[in-house]
C-alpha cells in the first residue's frame, strides 16, 4: 500500500480546497520533489496525502514593463535558459546555475526553494538583493510580501497552513552578481555565498547566504558602497564592515574563522564582477 495518496488538481481553487481538507501535517505539497521526497524518506514529513502542483498553470515566465514574474512551478532549468534572465538579471542566472546539477534543475523549482527555505539556498540571497516579492494564494485570496519577510529560518516561512506560493516578482532588471564557495561545484552546498545588486537608483544591495539560520541583507555594508561605481577605498571599507557585522556561526560545513575571511574577499570580488560580462 502506498504511504500517501497523490492528488493533482487542475485549478488553484481545487488545490486550496485540498489543503483545507485535513490537518496541515497530514498534507504535503509537491513541486519538483527534490526536497520533499528526501524529507519523506528521512521521516521529516509523514503526510497521508500529497498535493502535486504539476497540473497548475504556474510554469510561467513573464517579462512586463521591465519586471519579471516567475511562476512558482517553473523548472529552474527554464529560468536559466531564458536569454533575458542571463542578460538583465545576471546574479539570478548565476544563482540558478549553482543549484545542484542539470538533471536536478529540470525538476527543481523556485517555489520549492522558497518553500524549503534552506539556510544554504542559493536563490534566496539573490532574491533579497533584487527586492523580490512572493505572491501567495489561499482561501482568502492573494497576498504579496518581500522575500525578506517571507523567509524566517530553515523550513520556516510566513506561508499560512492553507496557502501556496504562486509566483515571485522581481521589480526591475539589475546589474548583479552571485558568488559561492563550496568544496565541490555540483551536488554540494555553499559554505558561504555573496549576492550583490545595483538598483535602478544606483544604490546597492548586499546579501550573504550559506550561514544558518537564513540568508540576510546587509544594508550597512551596502551603504558603505555608496552609489554607482565605488572606488577601491569604498569597496575595502564595505568588505571590512561585512567581516565585522555578519553574524557568522560555525557548522559542519565551515568554521567561523574561514567564513569571516571569505565574506570580505567574496564581497570585493562580487562588487567587481557586477557589470562585467557574465561567464558561464
Amino acid at each position: 500500500m502506498a504511504a500517501f495518496e497523490l492528488v493533482a488538481p487542475r485549478s488553484v481553487d481545487e488545490a486550496v480546497a485540498a489543503l483545507r481538507g485535513g490537518p496541515r501535517t497530514e498534507i504535503g505539497v509537491l513541486a519538483g520533489g527534490t526536497d520533499l521526497l528526501l524529507d519523506l524518506d528521512e521521516g521529516r514529513a509523514e503526510p497521508t496525502r500529497v498535493l502535486s502542483l504539476r497540473r497548475l498553470p504556474w510554469r510561467t515566465l513573464d517579462w512586463a514593463a521591465g519586471s519579471l514574474t516567475i511562476g512558482s512551478t517553473l523548472p529552474l532549468r527554464a529560468l536559466e535558459d531564458d536569454p533575458d534572465v542571463r542578460q538583465r538579471l545576471p546574479g539570478l542566472w548565476q544563482a540558478v546555475r549553482a543549484v545542484g546539477s542539470v538533471a536536478l534543475r529540470h525538476r527543481a523549482t523556485l517555489g520549492g526553494n522558497l518553500g524549503r527555505a534552506a539556510p544554504a539556498s542559493d536563490l534566496i540571497p539573490v532574491l533579497l538583493t533584487l527586492d523580490a516579492e512572493v505572491e501567495l494564494v489561499g482561501p482568502d485570496g492573494a497576498r504579496r510580501m518581500l522575500v525578506d519577510r517571507f523567509v524566517r529560518a530553515s523550513r520556516r516561512t510566513e506561508l499560512g497552513p492553507h496557502e501556496l506560493i504562486r509566483s515571485v516578482r522581481i521589480p526591475e532588471p539589475r546589474r548583479s552578481a552571485y558568488l559561492w564557495q563550496r568544496v565541490r561545484p555540483a551536488n554540494d552546498i555553499s559554505q558561504l555565498a555573496v549576492a550583490v545588486a545595483r538598483a535602478g537608483d544606483e544604490s546597492w544591495r548586499v546579501a550573504v547566504g550559506g550561514i544558518p539560520p537564513r540568508a540576510t541583507l546587509l544594508p550597512d555594508v551596502a551603504e558603505e558602497l555608496g552609489r554607482a561605481d565605488p572606488d577601491d577605498r569604498r569597496v575595502a571599507r564595505a568588505a571590512d564592515r561585512a567581516q565585522r557585522d555578519v553574524a557568522i556561526v560555525a557548522d559542519r560545513r565551515a568554521s567561523e574563522e574561514y567564513r569571516r575571511r571569505l565574506v570580505g574577499t567574496m564581497l570585493r570580488r562580487a562588487v567587481r564582477a557586477v557589470g562585467q560580462e557574465v561567464r558561464a
Binding site: L30, L104, H106, R107
Partner: peptide
C-alpha cells in the same frame, strides 16, 4: 528528452 533523476521523481508525476 530532458535528463531527470529517477530516484527523486514519482512515476505518477
Amino acid at each position: 528528452g530532458r535528463s531527470v533523476l529517477a530516484c527523486l521523481t514519482l512515476a505518477h508525476e
